[in-house]
Amino acid sequence: MEFFLEVLIGGLLAGVMYSLVALGFVLIYKASGVFNFAQGAMVFFAALTFVGAQEKLGLSLWAALAFSLLLMILLGVLTEKIVLRPLVNQPPISLFMVTIGLTFFVEGLAQLMWGTKVYPLELGIPDEPVATTIESLGLSATNLPTVLQEINSFDLIAAIVAGVLVAGLAIFFQITKIGRALRAVADDHQAALSIGIPLKSIWAIVWSVAGFVALVAGLMWGARNGVQFALTFVALKALPVLILGGFDSVMGAIVGGLIIGALEKLAEVYIGPFFGGGIEIWFAYVAALLFLLIRPEGLFGDKQIDRV
């Protein structure tokens, strides 16, 4: 039982990381109906820029952070302007394919700017069991349950960051004027436009926010696994998360990420051995696929009614 809990918690925490990437997808999908396949590439771009700016330009941590954020916003705004605006009103499938092209381009651009080597990313977050961290702070961890003691501090902090980010976004979109405009845009572009909501600047803002989310995700992932090309594959895992949670639900991205993370770890530990391991590569996709057959609109997505 204790082992099960340990695997489950580990999975949930890993799932938080998926949620972080998925969040960026949802934001853009909600605002512009574009399924941005390049979100993963943006995560990679952000992480590489952050470490590249420190190594190659000699910037301090905070300067590098500001620099990356600026670059991400620029990237988002330019993407919206150059790539997506000419394709407004095209079938969703064309928009999807153009973001695949964008994926390649952004990956290439990142490596052109900062090179192809693998960088470590150090945020100063301890990668060790919580108990060790607590003890290193001079406190005692003995009265914590063993399951909690075993949790990795890094995962925990990642979860907290994700939580803060989600809460922040939720507040931003609920109470600010921009947020209200965004929700209007998500509901109906034409109607929003007709009541004087500046559609273009809303889209620019959303892409910037998505760039910011990508940066946060990139920092967490990069610190965990090093900044390397493989990051883009991890980001692909956000796709089954979205299928599970629904493309247009922030809540879905979070819950979907947690579920996929947990399922994946549990499957690897309990089912994996029967298959000789390595099922993590595909399990999330197959799980999402099976789920689709039962509930095509996702856990939190809106059901579409076909009209003729």
Partner: peptide
């Protein structure tokens, strides 16, 4: 090192965007 593959990514991606638009 690896500049060719990086350029390939850039050119492929750029072309896809170009053609679709």
């Amino acid at each position: 090192a690896g500049i060719t593959s990086v350029m390939q990514l850039l050119v492929f991606g750029g072309l896809i965007i170009f053609f679709l638009i």
